[in-house]
Amino acid sequence: MRAHVLVAEDDEMQAELIRRTLLSEGHAVTVTHDGLTALDQARRLSPDLVVLDLMLPEVDGYEVCRALRADGEIPVLMLTARTSEDEVLRGLDLGADDYMTKPYSPRELLARIRTVLRRSNRDLQQHEHVIRAGGITVYPERHEVLRDGVPVDCTPAEFAILTTMAAEPGRVFSRLQLLACTRGIDRASTERAVDVHIMNLRRKVEADPRRPARLLTVFGVGYKLSAVRG
């Protein structure tokens, strides 16, 4: 089983050791050294597993784990130098799939990673396609949308538009381009119907639809989905 693993470890020597250990097993590896960057990379890259140190700068591992659980189901293996039962239980209660206490051997780390990946059934040969952008998660095969981890009901046309925009966050789409992605779903639609779909989507995915932070209007051109979490 080969996977893409995101390593969030502020100790650069430890991070490099983990990176080399994972590469030796054939995994792809992305390394970060603080919690904010770890969250950003997890949302952008959708890794198969996050190896997460608890004592991270900017945002600690507990808060990173809490945010990842709100976003979706990326497996998390926590690393901690703390051995108290309360600290371990806190991490597991937040949704960590497993934990390891420091120091640990590279062989044990690989064994734990293999176990978590098997348990989560995220083999790269079989895992479900997921699109994430700006706090929006789209599961095309399941026809499901989450906003900050909360399910959102979309019509078929709304789903087609949102999926198209989420696949290329930051790109500006004209009304005609967004209309084209609904062909076969909403045959009677016009370009102005796209405005209605966008208005309805804003009610569903924006904290304040009157001041959108995700689905943005680019005047004279069309619309774009912000890559930044709204």
Rank of each mutant, 00 (worst) to 15 (best):
E73Y: 05
D148F: 12
R214E: 00
D71V: 02
V138Y: 00
F159S: 01
L23Y: 04
C154H: 09
L49F: 07
P75K: 09
L54D: 03
H143M: 13
Y99T: 01
A70P: 04
L22H: 13
T83N: 14
A166E: 05
T190V: 07
T115I: 10
R19G: 08
L216M: 06
E128V: 04
R122I: 03
M55F: 13
T155K: 14
S120P: 06
D195Q: 13
Y104T: 01
A96Q: 14
A157N: 08
D97P: 14
L52D: 03
A42I: 12
K102Q: 10
G149Y: 12
M1Q: 10
L68N: 08
L45N: 11
E158Q: 15
S84R: 08
E12D: 07
V130M: 13
K102H: 06
G170P: 11
V205G: 00
A207E: 10
R183L: 08
E25M: 14
V59D: 08
F159Q: 00
R2L: 08
V7L: 06
P103N: 06
D10N: 09
I161L: 01
R203V: 07
G91D: 03
Q125G: 08
D123V: 05
R43H: 11
P103K: 12
R210H: 06
F159K: 05
V152F: 04
V76N: 07
T182M: 13
T30Q: 15
V76S: 13
G220F: 04
D10A: 04
H127L: 10
G184V: 04
V29E: 14
D186G: 15
I161Y: 00
Q41Y: 13
P140C: 03
V5W: 14
V172M: 03
S105F: 05
R122C: 09
L109M: 15
R114C: 12
E128D: 07
D97I: 08
R183Y: 05
R69M: 04
I198H: 01
I198Y: 01
R192V: 03
R119N: 14
T83S: 15
G170A: 02
R66L: 05
T182F: 13
R118M: 10
V150I: 10
Y99G: 02
P75V: 05
D153V: 04
L79P: 05
D86C: 04
S189H: 11
L109P: 06
A28V: 03
F219P: 05
H4V: 03
P106H: 07
A96P: 15
D97C: 03
R132W: 07
G220N: 10
R119S: 09
G170C: 02
I74N: 01
G61W: 15
R214H: 02
